[in-house]
Amino acid sequence: MERTSLCLPVVLLLMQCSPSCSVTVSTNEPKVEVKEFSDAVLSCLFHTEIDQNPRIEWKKTGKDVSFVYFNGQFKGSFGGRATIEGATVTLHGVTQEDAGEYRCEVSAHLDIVNLGETNITLKVLVPPHTPSCEIPASAVTGSVVQLRCWDQQSIPPAKYSWFKDSKPISPPRRANATYLINSQTGILEFQSVAKEDTGHYSCLASNEVGQPKMCEGKHMTVEDVNVTAVVAVVLVVCLLGIVCGCGGLLLHRNGFLTRHRGRSFWISQCPGAAHISSQTLHRTEDTSNVNYIPPPQEDFKHTQSFML
């Protein structure tokens, strides 16, 4: 009974001290979105019960952890373009390299729970850039043709719309439309292009961050037959025929296409070729003589006598 009476005040003391003798860290805005080249405020609020001079650290987390603020100074690329008030950090002129996850850590060594932290996500918004457009110069009627438009730098991703001769192309409302528009990927596809589709095409990229941007555009001509390609193929074939014909004629005149001329030329141009050729002929004759067996000779006998 005495032991119980002694332990009870200690337990009550710990229960009263634990919540108040600890550091607490929080933030007003866990997700921060700002435009590129503007200022980003990363709020960090803390409370300590005993330690009035806690240590404050900021880190950028991810695949690698790097210090932003440590030992009273900003580190790395944040030096000279960031300020701190209390534990709240302001980054000036943020870019895409600054986007990511940040952690504020407060250490109060005199408190019972002496470490607290909070996390903040920074997203840097980027207005549209001038998109890149891929528009064929010519096409054949009835074929499938794709016009492409993309902007890989805008955040959030841009949406795309197409123009023909400076007039917007409305998204198809009929199921059997001859073209399709994907505002997310920026692809304008003609499933069966016709002559009426000839014109000057351009693409507009837009998001809610900044002013939309349009590519320079290009003229597309739709023809029944690709005359340019046919003429090019005919010219190439004719040129190859002329070159082959002239080459064969020159070889024939110089005797390169005859067997005797070719052997004589080879012998005259290759050192030692005549010696090798004569040895080869002698070996051939010797080989033929080794296997030769003369026919047997029969004795000639007179069966009758002739008288003159």
Rank of each mutant, 00 (worst) to 15 (best):
E2F: 07
L6Y: 03
L6I: 06
L8Y: 08
S18W: 14
P19A: 05
V23D: 02
V23F: 05
V25C: 10
S26D: 05
N28D: 12
P30L: 00
K31M: 09
V34C: 05
F37M: 14
F37D: 15
D39I: 00
V41A: 02
I50K: 09
V65W: 06
V68S: 01
Y69S: 05
F70Y: 03
F74T: 06
F78Y: 14
G86A: 03
A87I: 10
T88L: 09
H92C: 03
H92K: 15
G93Y: 06
A99G: 14
V106K: 10
A108M: 03
N114A: 13
L115N: 10
L125A: 07
V126T: 14
P128H: 11
H129F: 05
T130K: 14
C133W: 00
P136H: 00
A137Y: 04
S138F: 09
S138T: 15
T141Q: 13
V144F: 07
R148H: 08
W150L: 00
Y160E: 05
Y160R: 01
P168Y: 11
P171H: 11
A175V: 07
A175I: 04
L180V: 11
N182H: 03
G186L: 08
G186V: 11
I187Y: 10
L188A: 03
Q191T: 12
Q191F: 11
Q191Y: 11
A194F: 01
A194P: 01
K195E: 15
S202R: 02
A205W: 01
S206M: 15
M214A: 15
D224L: 02
V233D: 13
V236C: 03
C238P: 00
L239M: 09
G241M: 13
G241F: 11
I242L: 14
C246H: 06
G255D: 13
G262Q: 11
G262C: 10
R263V: 15
S264K: 12
F265D: 05
I276K: 12
S277T: 12
S277K: 14
S278H: 11
L281E: 08
T284V: 02
T284R: 05
E285A: 13
V290Q: 07
Y292Q: 10
Y292F: 15
Y292E: 08
P296V: 04
E298I: 11
